[in-house]
Computed example of a mutant assay.
Amino acid sequence: MMGVDGSAALTPEPVDSEAVRKAEAARAKAEHDQEFAAFAEGSYHTVERILRATCWDREVVQDALNEAYLHGRVQWLKIRTYTEPIGWVIITARNKIRKELHRRQREAAVAPEDLPPAPHIDIADAWEAQETLRTWLHHLPSRQAEVFQMSREGFSNQEIARFLGLAENSVRSYKQAAKKRLRELAEEAGYRDSDGRRRQGGSRGPQ
């Protein structure tokens, strides 16, 4: 019986390059899935608050958000390279909302004279204040409301300008106009400071 040739015994088995490629692709996909899931979880509610500043219909906002994130998942390899992926989500969802509202032939704005009176609510109640502010934002021009809410979420003037395609000076003007109008609405509605004093003309309203 012949012995086994030593060199033949040490010859490595051929590598299945296709199997290696598939395994690497699966590993990369799993990493990207986890990365996108973390991004979506961390940004969803921020984007939702920004969009609800200009659209009263929660269902329309949520549908647009879900579509935007589904699209974002498909395009994640590209979107993840952006400086601010959240900006892409905001713009995409906002465009979907506009299309849906146009399709339904609905108006997002409410006439100022329809503002519900709330003369005796203490603005110190955080939840009540949040809901009231959301109501007031719908009485502002949509661009003012959008800029104001993005500012509240911590976006800088430069970031807002980049996301919305505006000049920084325009962003500052929209913010100032929004704050002025919100103060007026607070005073008209008779809101009081936490110490019970009624807000008078010229006092500071919601920030």
Rank of each mutant, 00 (worst) to 15 (best):
residue 200 Q to M: 08
residue 49 R to G: 06
residue 202 G to I: 03
residue 7 S to A: 10
residue 178 A to R: 04
residue 148 F to L: 08
residue 165 G to M: 09
residue 163 F to I: 15
residue 61 V to D: 08
residue 127 W to Y: 15
residue 157 N to G: 12
residue 100 E to C: 01
residue 101 L to E: 14
residue 23 A to V: 00
residue 10 L to A: 12
residue 176 Q to D: 09
residue 31 E to P: 01
residue 64 A to T: 03
residue 152 R to N: 13
residue 101 L to D: 07
residue 55 C to T: 07
residue 205 G to I: 02
residue 170 S to Q: 14
residue 201 G to W: 14
residue 33 D to A: 10
residue 80 R to G: 00
residue 173 S to I: 02
residue 142 S to M: 07
residue 145 A to T: 02
residue 187 E to K: 05
residue 116 P to E: 14
residue 42 G to R: 09
residue 121 I to F: 13
residue 88 W to V: 04
residue 7 S to D: 15
residue 27 R to D: 12
residue 48 E to S: 14
residue 161 A to G: 04
residue 16 D to R: 07
residue 200 Q to V: 04
residue 75 Q to H: 08
residue 4 V to W: 11
residue 117 P to D: 15
residue 14 P to G: 06
residue 109 A to W: 12
residue 174 Y to G: 00
residue 124 A to K: 10
residue 122 D to G: 06
residue 61 V to F: 02
residue 113 E to F: 11
residue 156 S to E: 12
residue 121 I to P: 00
residue 137 L to W: 02
residue 174 Y to S: 03
residue 183 R to Q: 10
residue 196 G to C: 06
residue 191 Y to K: 04
residue 67 E to C: 05
residue 119 P to I: 08
residue 93 A to Q: 10
residue 31 E to K: 15
residue 80 R to H: 09
residue 145 A to L: 04
residue 154 G to F: 13
residue 168 E to G: 01
residue 204 R to E: 15
residue 122 D to M: 08
residue 130 Q to P: 00
residue 62 Q to C: 00
residue 167 A to S: 10
residue 135 T to Y: 05
residue 128 E to I: 06
residue 91 I to C: 05
residue 94 R to L: 09
residue 176 Q to Y: 00
residue 27 R to C: 09
residue 150 M to V: 02
residue 46 T to I: 11
residue 29 K to D: 14
residue 48 E to Y: 13
residue 66 N to K: 10
residue 173 S to N: 07
residue 181 R to V: 05
residue 18 E to H: 02
residue 126 A to Y: 12
residue 124 A to M: 08
residue 108 A to P: 00
residue 107 E to D: 07
residue 60 V to W: 00
residue 37 A to S: 10
residue 36 F to K: 06
residue 78 K to V: 04
residue 162 R to W: 06
residue 25 A to F: 08
residue 65 L to M: 11
residue 125 D to A: 09
residue 38 A to P: 02
residue 197 R to D: 13
residue 38 A to T: 09
residue 128 E to Y: 13
residue 143 R to T: 02
residue 85 P to V: 06
residue 22 K to A: 11
residue 54 T to P: 08
residue 20 V to N: 07
residue 64 A to W: 04
residue 75 Q to G: 05
residue 142 S to D: 05
residue 96 K to P: 01
residue 87 G to I: 03
residue 63 D to S: 04
residue 76 W to I: 02
residue 29 K to I: 03
residue 183 R to Y: 02
residue 162 R to T: 08
residue 24 E to W: 02
residue 36 F to A: 09
residue 128 E to T: 11
residue 33 D to L: 10
residue 65 L to S: 02
residue 178 A to H: 05
residue 31 E to Q: 12
residue 119 P to F: 15
residue 113 E to D: 12
residue 14 P to S: 12
residue 178 A to D: 00
residue 153 E to H: 13
residue 4 V to Q: 14
residue 157 N to K: 11
residue 29 K to C: 03
residue 53 A to D: 13
residue 132 T to L: 12
residue 54 T to H: 04
residue 147 V to A: 10
residue 86 I to S: 03
residue 129 A to D: 10
residue 77 L to F: 01
residue 119 P to L: 13
residue 98 R to F: 06
residue 20 V to L: 15
residue 27 R to W: 14
residue 64 A to K: 01
residue 121 I to C: 10
residue 157 N to V: 01
residue 206 P to I: 07
